[in-house]
Design a binder for these strands. Structure first.
Length: 254
DNA sequence: AATTTTTCCAACCGCGCGCTT
DNA sequence: CAAGCGCGCGGTTGGAAAAAT
């Protein structure tokens, strides 16, 4: 899946790199560094332009460079950072060791963008369904101590506190929803937005298996999750990821 | 099985920034 | 201050491989 090699009018080689070229570039950079990309190909014996050498080194030959096989964690980080930074691929790449800006950009356009578009479509569908029976359903799902969503909403609006409700660890008031704090969103709006995942009963014997339940509670109360506070309401997949991240720490005592 | 279409990644291209002269 | 140069960034393309027809 790459361009066939050819020579341009200046006699410089373009297109796919051969193994021999890779080895020549690698050997040269490892020995002499790359203080001047423009001069480098001449000294390394390569018929390439400096730019091409630089790109090949950064994206392919550089030690520790990762190729493909993105983890769920990496995908999530890219999505979060893209929300914050936009198409600042080099800035995003700095937060993902071993990944180049070019590779992240490709991954975004070929996978993540489509994934997000699908999620949005599904969310709109949920919203439509939920709005049909919102009036009757929303309130009962939002008992603070009974649902994950209720817990989050309560944390945000200080309905409960860790002092008077020690069984619920009130760790954050920073949850957000569509850019606004949950405290400012009506129950009905929240219900429409999140669908039934967030409004399932909070108790383990009802819905979740024991391991997931414990992890879920732990995750909800950790600073790491707060960092993702705006995202946590937008994507249930992310929460599942956090559950996997902290499987050994069932700190909650409900 | 043959052909067409889509996917996706390596590589190219042009622009802008910062440094040097 | 202006011009020249090199580098890095982000958008775009080429084309092989995979999937669909």
């Amino acid at each position: 899946m790459m361009r066939s090699p050819y020579y341009d009018k200046n006699g410089l080689k373009r297109g796919a790199w051969s193994k021999e070229e890779d080895e020549m570039l690698r050997a040269y950079v490892e020995r002499y560094g790359h203080s001047n990309w423009r001069q480098l190909p001449k000294h390394a014996g390569l018929s390439r332009c400096g730019k091409s050498c630089r790109l090949r080194w950064l994206n392919y030959l550089r030690p520790g460079v990762k190729r493909g096989n993105y983890t769920q964690e990496e995908d999530q980080l890219i999505i979060n950072l893209h929300q914050q930074l936009g198409n600042k691929w080099s800035s995003i790449a700095k937060r993902l060791p071993g990944r180049s800006d070019n590779e992240i950009k490709n991954h975004w356009h070929s996978h993540l963008k489509k994934l997000l578009e699908r999620n949005h479509a599904e969310k709109s569908e949920l919203k439509t369904k939920a709005s049909d029976n919102c009036e009757g359903e929303a309130t009962k799902y939002l008992e603070p101590e009974n649902t994950l969503l209720g817990f989050a909403a309560a944390s945000s609006s200080n309905i409960i506190s860790s002092e008077n409700s020690p069984h619920i660890y009130n760790s954050s008031s920073n949850f957000s929803f569509g850019g606004e704090s949950v405290a400012n969103a009506s129950a009905c709006e929240i219900f429409e937005e999140f669908g039934d995942f967030w409004t399932k009963p909070f108790l383990p014997e009802n819905i979740y298996d024991q391991n997931n339940y414990k992890s879920l509670n732990y995750a909800v109360n950790e600073a790491d999750v707060r960092e993702y506070s705006s995202y946590i309401f937008d994507n249930a997949d992310f929460l599942c990821h956090v559950m996997q991240e902290f499987p050994e720490d069932p700190k909650m005592d409900i």
